[in-house]
Design a protein around this nucleic acid. Structure first.
Length: 259
DNA sequence: ATTGTGGCCTGCCCGC
DNA sequence: TGCGGGCAGGCCACAA
């Protein structure tokens, strides 16, 4: 599913639309307009604007224009199509089918081309001028000191804290499980129980994991990923993996080396 | 404020 | 062969 790595790939794929002007807006799904935004508003406000920038904070993609900022969320199954081409053809837990009926939002540009969100399960959404201050620092960029404060500032399970987008933006279920697997930390530890050395190790490991999986091609390319099934065994030491709900998400971790 | 829970969306897969 | 239940998780509303 799209976590920050996939959203970054989407952002890069969208770069050809920089400088283009929106000629028409396709917004057939009222459910897909989030916050105070309506589909009428999307059509009225975006028609005629020129794209001036493309940014990403965590899983939120931001399209800057000479009008409002357009915020795009992809949920679990959303993909981007730029000029009819998809940079990522298949997603974990999504369909291999590719049905235009799943186009929930899109814009056409003067002189040709388009930007479309195709999302079978409608878990993504579109919002005008989203409140960027509601997100914590991006996980790929956060430095040790603020990261330490984020981890230490909560008694919630470590995994829940790392997935709290208001505190740290970008990690989803797969990236977090892979990071904790590599760092040797148990997801159900209380976040504020980590020693300084463990926080440093977690910070290093998180950033390295984001980098490595980014190079491999996505959040589903982790070493733990093939073992994330019932009865799976730890790829590092062969021990049984624990499977439990942590932070509201199905979580796999090694019964031996993650403490 | 923090933390935890449940529901939403829908396609796919498994077992009967 | 068809059918139904369970499952996936990002996000939000809500409760305590």
């Amino acid at each position: 599913m799209p976590e920050m790595l996939e959203i970054e790939a989407y952002r890069r794929a969208a770069e050809p639309v920089l400088g283009r002007t929106v000629s028409s807006v396709h917004a057939p799904d009222e459910w897909y307009a989030k916050g105070d935004t309506t589909t009428d508003q999307l059509r009225a406000v975006l028609t005629g604007v020129t794209v001036t920038g493309l940014r990403r904070i965590g899983k939120l993609m931001l399209v800057d224009t000479d009008g409002p900022v357009l915020g795009l969320r992809y949920g679990m199954t959303g993909r981007i199509l730029v000029d009819e081409a998809a940079p990522i053809e298949a997603l974990e837990y999504s369909s291999d089918r590719n049905d235009p009926a799943w186009d929930r939002f899109g814009v056409d540009f003067s002189g040709g081309g388009s930007l479309v969100i195709r999302d079978p399960r409608r878990l993504g959404g579109v919002e005008l001028d989203p409140d960027e201050s509601k997100l914590g620092p991006d996980a790929a960029a956060v430095t040790r000191t603020p990261f330490g404060a984020i981890v230490s500032g909560s008694s919630a399970p470590l995994k829940a804290r790392l997935m709290d987008q208001a505190k740290l933006a970008g990690l989803g279920n797969l990236l977090v499980d892979e990071t904790l697997f590599r760092a040797g930390l148990a997801p159900d530890r209380r976040a504020n129980s980590l020693a300084d050395e463990e926080i440093s190790r977690l910070h290093r490991t998180m950033r390295r994991t984001i980098m490595v999986l980014g190079e491999r091609g996505g959040s589903h390319t982790g070493d733990l990923q093939p073992a994330r099934v019932r009865g799976g065994l730890c790829p590092r030491d062969g021990a049984e993996l624990n499977r439990a709900d942590v932070g509201g998400r199905t979580t796999y971790w090694c019964s031996q080396h993650q403490h």
